[in-house]
């Protein structure tokens, strides 16, 4: 079985507010790039699903060639190969069309994505990809396992319950974080091995423009927070001081 994990390399999502800048509506300036937060959990779900020696885990990314060092992280976790599609836009329909093209070309059976990208946070690509591929789509998935008769059990984590669904055909899932899919930390051997793993480059395919909405503006909101540092030399006194302040302001 071929398992494909669609990974987006994103600007460091923990960049502090005071260093965050925009140019033409997108982040600019100095920042590191890394595998998206939920995409790492998606890689972990894929690795747990893989039967070693039988299945192959592809990392599929619609991005730039210079993002390969960040994509190696996914390989060093244990994925087998990278397919990098040279991207020209961050439009979700173009992205999904290009991912779908590669899914078909490489015969990917199980498609796994993170629930939301850690930059634009639109949550659009996974369901659109499922729509294009005409496959069942299961969001909020936390784990996938195979059954003896070749079908799959996907567990979804909802607010008030978990659902276990049985899927017989090829599928698309998006993954949310849970203790069972905490991303593994690559060891030195895997990091070294990842440098020799195959990378396939794919050209972008032409796609029709899908008019979904015009991006009218992108701005940085300014939140003003007043901070007060309380003393920490006598914590009992600090506890009393804090209680007094919270009561005075009617929070307690």
């Amino acid at each position: 079985m071929n398992i494909g994990v669609c990974v987006k390399i994103v600007p460091d999502y923990e960049i502090p507010v005071d260093k965050f800048q925009l140019k033409d509506g997108r982040i600019t300036g100095e920042y590191n790039e890394l595998v998206g937060l939920y995409d790492e959990h998606a890689v972990e779900v894929a690795l747990q699903l893989r039967s070693k020696g039988e299945d192959k885990v592809y990392i599929i990314s619609y991005g730039r060639e210079d993002q390969m060092p960040a994509l190696r992280k996914a390989l060093s976790m244990g994925a087998d190969e990278v397919i990098l599609i040279k991207a020209s836009t961050d439009d979700p329909f173009v992205t999904a069309s290009n991912l779908a093209n590669v899914v078909k070309k490489y015969g990917i059976d199980a498609v796994i994505l993170g629930r939301v990208s850690s930059d634009l946070e639109r949550e659009m690509v996974p369901p659109i990809l499922a729509g294009i591929l005409n496959r069942p789509y299961l969001p909020y998935t936390i784990s996938i396992s195979k059954t003896e008769n070749g079908s799959f059990l996907c567990e979804q984590q909802l607010d008030d319950r978990n659902l276990v669904l049985k899927v017989n055909d090829n599928f698309v899932v998006s993954v949310t974080d849970a203790p069972c899919n905490l991303p593994r930390i690559p060891n030195l051997k895997e990091i070294m091995r990842s440098k020799k793993k195959p990378v396939h480059f794919e050209e972008e395919i032409p796609t029709d423009k899908f008019e979904w909405a015009e991006e009218a503006s992108v701005s940085i909101p300014h939140y003003e927070y007043v901070n007060e540092m309380l003393p920490n030399d006598d914590l009992s006194a600090t506890a009393k001081l804090l209680l007094d302040k919270l009561r005075e302001e009617h929070y307690l």
């Binding site: 965050f20 991006e215 940085i220």
Partner: peptide, 17 residues
């Protein structure tokens, strides 16, 4: 329609046509 991006560090305004 407004949407927060980059962990609430940016707000994107969309205007469907």
């Amino acid at each position: 329609f407004k949407h927060s991006a980059y962990g609430d560090k940016a707000i994107i305004e969309y205007k469907p046509n």
